[in-house]
Amino acid sequence: MASNFGHIYLEEAAADYPLTAEICANFPAAQRINIRNYRHFFNRPNQDYNLQKGGLKLILAVKRDDLLYRGSPECQDFNSANFYYNTPLVNCVYDCEYCYLQGKYQSANLLVFVNQDDLMAAVTGQIPRRPEAERPLLLALSYDTDLLAIDNRIPIFKPWVEFARTAENLLVEIRTKSAAVAGLKSIASGKNILLSWTVSPQRIIDLIEHFTPALDRRIQAIGVAIEQGWQVRLSIDPVIHSEDWPQLYLAMIERLFTRLPASAIHDIQFGPFRINENYYRRLRRARPRSLILMQPLVVQDGIVSWPPAQQTELRKRISDQLSRYLPDEKIHPWQI
């Protein structure tokens, strides 16, 4: 992974939280720097995202506002008006070249909010006010990070699972690429918790998903999670364009369902590379020679993605392949 966290920047207000003590104890050799407000460090101008990826710092802070967000149009919302996401942790130990985080934030450093109870309370408060009362509130918990990947040292995953398991009218999606599933054994799963694994062909992982586990290790981890009774969603997202993308992705789907029981998969979602236009501008500045920029991309309604005809082809070819293993109602292509 990208870092062993040699520095912890500790916000004054975060000092007395139990989670702060727990995390600091996991990094006894780290330099501790006391700061007044995390924004003074996290939002500094002219930071270099890629250089920081080579030496990530940990920031422990208190989240005071925006404890819960409405889902954005670039996200898969599963046709639910009740789609929300939150950010218990910001930024990721992995370094995927397509990641929107490098466009969204000035800093690559890992920002942990230690007042997780306040974030949970915001979710609890929103459940009765969700727009569609007949459906549960859908909460994406791990969009701006990968909670499972760092759970052994930044333990946020388990408290959220326990919170979600006992909550009513709540469906939580926790997205991950992690293969670190040993800890799942000690956590009771819940019917309203989806572990959503992002999978990519190994060639794509090698080229642009830096520090992430290999495809086979992810498949193995998914198998373990299924055996332990977790609800598993698969996410082939983003699909990266190349001359032979159909072969790459169709072969990967075949491999997935050779090794995993299709009947145990909750559902699968997929979509082409897409990113907010402003984030794309920053991405191209940060990684001017990335393979991401070699895709044929167009701007439509402020979103940079594949041209419409190629998106149609993507939907058809991936859906057709998935239909060999899953019923249509379990296949969710992304569309604006």
Binding site: Y9, H40, F41, D48, L51, G54
Partner: peptide
């Protein structure tokens, strides 16, 4: 407050 990014692998105390 100002924060230089400490990104070099140095052996000085901070």
């Amino acid at each position: 407050c100002y924060y230089p990014d400490v990104l070099i692998n140095h052996d000085l105390p901070e």
